[in-house]
Design a protein around this nucleic acid. Structure first.
Length: 616
RNA sequence: GCCGGCGUAGCUCAGUGGUAGAGCAGCUGAUUCGUAAUCAGCAGGUCGUCGGUUCAAUCCCGACCGCCGGCUCCA
């Protein structure tokens, strides 16, 4: 008896698309083993959705082979929200092709052809894929002697499975776009044509996903950056180089002020360093060996080579080394909003999130080994405090451990990895270990913040560095009078101000909380007879530290309200005849909520109540 | 960098082998108005850049620059 027959008997054939037998997910065509524990998998189970998406990829490949017989098939996995399939074709698919492929897919689904699993020897299998070099290559890499194949009508694919029993079982899908993708993700290989699709169990879920995509588009920081006049990237300046307009600069200043203040309180010393330094400095640091591909070309200055800085660390080390350090002086903490320049391939640039010049909220800590545990813990605490202040309280945390090639001693690595791990555990933070993913110079903790839409953004990083202290001989005099090597920690919390700002824009959809908003209140004169009063109100607000602007244009109130709301200013203060006569203002929140009229002082109190950020 | 798409006024976008339009924004004037757009007029573009085809190119072709979606990589 097959699982499908068993499913029928149990009345599950309509919903089940696969089954879990003793923990292994298998097709319904598999025999139902006597006495084994069988759990049905439906499209709404996580495993079910994946099967569904993967099967949809097969349906797409089948449609492509029907329409483009010369297309060579490669791989087509399920991914988050959908699937893709990579093809090798002479000319990439056009949007019209995509529509035809999608149409053909629907026809295939309608025929409800079965997905038939076959198991054959590798030798047999390779004879079944004539003219499919990629399948040959995949076959050659499979260690097992037998492999499984799936047949969907005429279409045959090498695949581990499992799959839905029939094409009719795939859910709602939509082809989204094509993209170039290297075979096996390696830029040395041929560029294939990838088709991305989304797939969900039901039409409703698919529509919901499309709605989310719309929402993401609406929040795009590049779009909002232009609409709200926050920043720009121009042809004339160059790609990946950011111009911060007054509104964006205002937010940046608030971010910086908050950051400097928090760091001063947390025991950091603020430093500044230049944008270029002798190339030799980067030779000593090892950047010319390990980081060359990300560095701009050296600059010739009177016959000497200088380098635009890709990192701040060597400068901070020089400051550390400017005098003898006692074990009593440690930890030394140097922090800088340091602007660095890195060569990023043009195709990778993306708004504020991926740029060529950016400002790191950088710091380097110099410690004794016995201070590692406590320092990492308080640093972690400090990091979360800063992230929370900006409204991020969901994280994905990763601990990356020693790679195969590394600097420093295994004993030190163990010490450092231990300190990072213990800090995370003591803080009660769930984290994932990425074994061997540490940088060559030390283990690290990466924190990805999750925004309002649940998307993850890499921002904070805490890295132990065993390499630089050695290369630069960063030392301190220990209690016994001997010179010891300091342990260095490199860390950034926001990561880069540009990226963090971009993430903030998307997180808040441009509607910054009052403490961050570039303009906190628009004062709207109802007619020009109130312009004088409105100016007084603006002056009073500004004197009290409120970022206020006045709208004295010859426009109706509705017009001014609309503009204020569209520019996402937290408060619009209506100043009309009624207000002027009583020296009041009538606040309206950007959502549309109207508040009772109040004095300027009362409004300032209200605003203060909302602008206290958690530092103070 | 690689693959594909795109590049028309400050912005959003129409359009055509015979050198261009709309809405918004801007300017001028009228209007003095109460919680998401008052009306009228005016002005605004070497159609990304360079080259080619053509009697004629914004349109067709090529190169370059840039942007967008991915790949690769990362703050």
């Amino acid at each position: 008896m097959t699982l499908l027959e068993l499913a029928k008997r149990e009345g599950k054939a309509k919903v089940a698309i696969a089954a879990k037998v003793d923990g292994a997910v298998v097709d319904l065509a598999c025999p139902a083993p006597e006495g084994a524990a069988v759990a049905w998998i439906t499209p709404s189970d996580p495993e079910g959705v994946e099967i569904l998406r993967h099967s949809t990829a097969h349906v797409m490949a089948a449609a492509v082979k029907q329409l483009f017989p010369s297309a060579r098939i490669t791989i087509g996995p399920a991914i988050e929200n959908g699937f893709y399939y990579d093809f090798d074709v002479e000319s990439p698919f056009t949007p019209e092709d995509l529509a035809r492929i999608e149409e053909r897919m629907r026809e295939i689904v309608k025929t409800d052809v079965p997905f038939v699993r076959e198991e054959v020897t590798k030798a047999k299998a390779s004879s079944l894929f004539p003219g499919e070099p990629y399948k040959e290559e995949l076959l050659a890499d499979i260690p097992d002697e037998t492999v499984s194949l799936y047949r969907t009508g005429e279409f045959l694919d090498l695949c581990r499975g499992p799959h839905v029993p029939n094409a009719g079982k795939v859910g709602a899908f939509k082809l989204m776009n094509t993209a170039g993708a290297y075979w096996r993700g390696d830029s040395k290989n041929k560029m294939l044509t990838r088709i991305y699709g989304i797939a969900f169990p039901t039409r409703k879920e698919l529509d919901e996903h499309l709605r989310i995509l719309e929402e993401i588009k609406k929040r795009d920081h590049r779009k909002l950056g232009k609409e709200l006049d926050l920043f720009s990237v121009t042809d004339e300046i160059g790609p990946g180089l950011i111009l911060w307009h007054p509104k964006g600069a205002a937010v940046r200043k608030i971010m910086e002020d908050f950051w400097r203040d928090a760091h001063a309180r947390a025991g950091y010393d603020l430093v500044f360093s230049p944008h270029i330094a002798r190339l030799d400095l980067w030779r000593v640091s090892g950047h010319t060996d390990y980081y060359r591909q990300a560095m701009f070309s050296p600059i010739d200055i009177e016959g000497q080579e200088y380098q635009l800085k890709p990192m701040n660390c060597p400068f901070h080390i020089q400051i550390y080394k400017s005098k003898m350090r006692s074990y009593r002086d440690l930890p030394v903490r140097y922090a800088e909003l340091g602007t660095v320049y890195r060569y990023e391939p043009s195709g990778t640039l993306h708004g504020l999130l991926r740029v060529r010049g950016f400002t790191q909220d950088d710091a380097h800590l110099f410690l004794r080994p016995d201070q590692l545990d406590e320092e990492i813990f308080s640093l972690l605490d400090f990091t979360l405090f800063v992230l929370r202040a900006f409204g991020f309280d969901r994280y994905d945390i990763y601990l990356s451990t020693r790679p195969e090639k590394y600097a420093g001693t295994p004993a030190n690595w163990d010490l450092a990895e231990d300190a990072l791990r213990k800090a995370l555990e003591r803080k009660g933070l769930p984290f994932e270990v990425d074994p061997g993913e540490g940088v060559f110079y030390g283990p690290k903790i990466d924190i990805k913040i999750k925004d309002m839409l649940g998307r993850s953004w890499q921002c904070s990083t805490i890295q132990v560095d065993f390499n630089n202290p050695e290369r630069f001989d960063a030392a301190y005099i220990a209690e016994d009078g001997t010179s010891r090597r300091a342990i260095m920690i490199h860390r950034a919390l926001m990561g880069s101000l540009e990226r963090f700002f971009g993430v903030l824009v998307e997180h808040y959809a441009g509607a910054f909380p009052a403490w961050l908003a570039p303009v906190q209140a628009d004062v709207l004169a109802v007619t020009d007879r109130q312009n004088g009063f409105a100016r007084e109100v603006v002056a009073k607000l500004r004197a009290a530290g409120c970022r206020a602007e006045g709208d004295y244009r010859n426009e109706k109130l509705g017009y001014k309200i609309r503009e204020s709301q569209l520019s996402k200013v937290p408060y619009a203060l209506v100043a009309g005849e009624r207000e002027a006569s009583q020296q009041l203002v009538t606040p309206r929140r950007r959502g549309g909520e109207q508040l009772p009229s109040m004095s300027v002082e009362e409004f300032l109190d209200l605003l203060r109540g909302e602008t206290v950020n958690p530092t103070k």
